[in-house]
Design a protein around this nucleic acid. Structure first.
Lengths: 343, 343
DNA sequence: CAATAAACCTCAAAAAACATCATCTTATTT
DNA sequence: AAATAAGATGATGTTTTTTGAGGTTTATTG
């Protein structure tokens, strides 16, 4: 009968024991153990301690559950109808749900588009409170100033898609936009098969560095490789479908020998609508952002290629930048989609 | 009897003792010791600890069962001069060093190319020993048989780049090759700007499903959209630069109106060499695998586009498949590189 | 060979995971 | 202060996973 073992066989504790010990219900223990949301930090600790005392958790589990409040990250996106941005917002929400309590808490705010003032204010508003802010930069002294201030409070910053220019300490996650512009130019040039004529640029706003860099790249390669094409001056469509629609109609009327359009910004839907209505499938059209509307446009032949930066990768990299200081600023990969390789 | 517990006698402890000490049943001990599934990690640790304390396990057994985290993964690649495969091997090594003791141990073996026999043997050789095998599949009954056998031993399998066809239980990590072929066809058709003439296919071997699927996709879109182009029968270059070089020279001589070439397989270097030597920059050429030689070829204008599947992503996804059973088989993204968006 | 430990299987019970709703707190607004 | 909203917690039901209790077969050992 002697203690057959040194250790009197210990009954394994169960969640119910932990619950009793912590003075909470089973549901709460479950929430803590499975990292579900909706538990006050204080209660969480009580449960964890009870579990510890009962030896309910293994080392690794304890370490996994014990620590770390997830980071507080704010993402500032331009408001407006730009479908890519809406998609980005959605992916953000999806990511938040996905990682659950694991990952950082991502909050997304939509800022008045193209307004440096509004962006600067939003930056300041979130300083200190958030651990990190990811934002679409507008190149403007007001924004730069605000960014510097915020960085000083310890809140980390990362610009996404469009950057601030040379501001040290603010890494950037986005494409190599000059190369992107050149690639667009190359493709339009090659797809036009030597035809002479005009190519048009449409942009959201030159205040976005991303846009002006793409424009610069596009212009440089046109000049370099395709002298038979002349570039018709850029129009700012403010990433608005209706505005882009009007621009395109005007363009089609004014420029009889239009060969191609490159939409540097978002909301390509307005452009395809104009092209479709005018039956101008012959016009080569390249735009940005893989969304429902651009997919359809490519499939029906109104659009020739979509340039995209994968939203999930973008977010992941942005979060990584905010987490670690070893922020590698290698540009994102440009995804190019034609009608046949849509995902 | 006394001796039994006073002095830890050298009597062999039994599973029952381990079970008692861990506070679980014999069935659970059995599950842990024989690596059966359906044991909670926490319980597993308990059992292992109890076993350790009782000296039930030998060093090797303990190592095998214990934190068996660093999985043993074998990657089987075709031997040969194919630069993409060499790059893949390099990335693999890099990954191994990178993850250090954390990640799985990746071992890479080069198998005689295009030999179903050799591949089958290699699979069998690594069965049981390795936890998982990632392999370039060759579609052949011998291979399928070997794969099924290996899967039965508990060693998990994943095909990379080229798959085995519909074999349940063997997930695949690779491109949607039909779509890839169609995209290549689309690009060549569009870049040729309506010229009439011939387009040629070069492949490694039809025994690779990836190659034949790309071929099928290419043929289907040519027929569908570009009647002015005729497809010149496929040649198998066995992913060998020298062979591809000879093929291309012959091609250039025999087919005066050659408009484009699509190299379904690897080792595009031979083709660009032939094109360069013959001064045939006018021939549109698309090939696979972003490597030193294809980069150069694109930059000097001998090649028009490179289709690539990112080696790092490929490896990561393959390892993920071998780790978890929740292997999502979503195809990889096709990366398309032109002269302007090379990374 | 007999005795025994281990391997391997199935099935039912127990525990845990997961989802939902009601209730109660707490903070915020009016 | 009352009203409201948002957050926490508990109660409870459903589903899935884990575990235990058997039995049968296969190796091992004395």
């Amino acid at each position: 009968m002697v203690s057959a073992d040194q250790h009197p066989t210990r009954e394994r504790p169960q969640q119910a024991d932990v619950a009793a010990r912590a003075g909470v219900s089973l549901a709460t223990v479950d929430r803590v153990l499975n990292r579900r949301k909706g538990v006050k930090e204080r209660t969480r600790q009580r449960v964890l301690e009870a579990a510890r005392e009962l030896g309910f958790l293994s080392e690794t589990e304890e370490a996994r559950l014990g620590n770390a409040r997830p980071l507080n990250i704010v993402v500032l996106l331009p408001a407006g109808s730009n479908p890519y941005l809406r998609l980005l917002g959605e992916r953000l929400r999806a990511r938040l749900e996905d990682t659950g309590a694991e990952g950082p808490v991502l909050r997304c705010f939509f800022i008045e588009s193209f307004s440096a003032q509004a962006l600067a204010e939003a930056l300041r508003r979130n300083a200190g409170w958030a651990d990190g802010i990811a934002f679409f930069a507008i190149e403007h002294p007001v924004v730069r100033e605000a960014a510097a201030e915020v960085a000083a409070t310890g809140t980390r910053l990362v610009s996404i898609v469009s950057d601030l220019g040379s501001v040290p300490g603010i890494p950037h996650v986005g494409l190599d936009n000059r190369a992107v512009g050149r690639t667009a130019g190359l493709l339009i040039g090659r797809l036009s098969g030597g035809r002479a004529g005009a190519v048009a640029l449409v942009a959201g706003s030159r205040h976005y560095r991303a846009h002006s860099e793409r424009e610069a790249g596009f212009l440089s390669i046109q000049e370099e490789l395709f002298p038979q094409l002349r570039v018709h001056g850029m129009r700012e469509g403010h990433d608005d479908a209706a505005e882009n629609y009007r621009h395109t109609l005007a363009l089609l009327e004014q420029v009889p020998d239009l060969v191609g359009i490159y939409n540097v910004g978002g909301s390509s839907g307005g452009i395809t609508r104009a092209l479709r209505e005018q039956g101008r499938q012959d016009v080569i059209f390249i735009g940005h952002g893989l969304t429902q509307d651009t997919r359809r446009a490519v499939l029906e032949g109104m659009m020739d290629a979509i340039f995209d930066q994968d939203p999930d990768t973008l977010l992941e990299r942005a979060v990584a930048c905010l987490n670690e200081s070893t922020a590698t600023a290698r540009p994102l990969k440009l995804d190019i989609y034609f009608s046949e390789n849509l995902p």
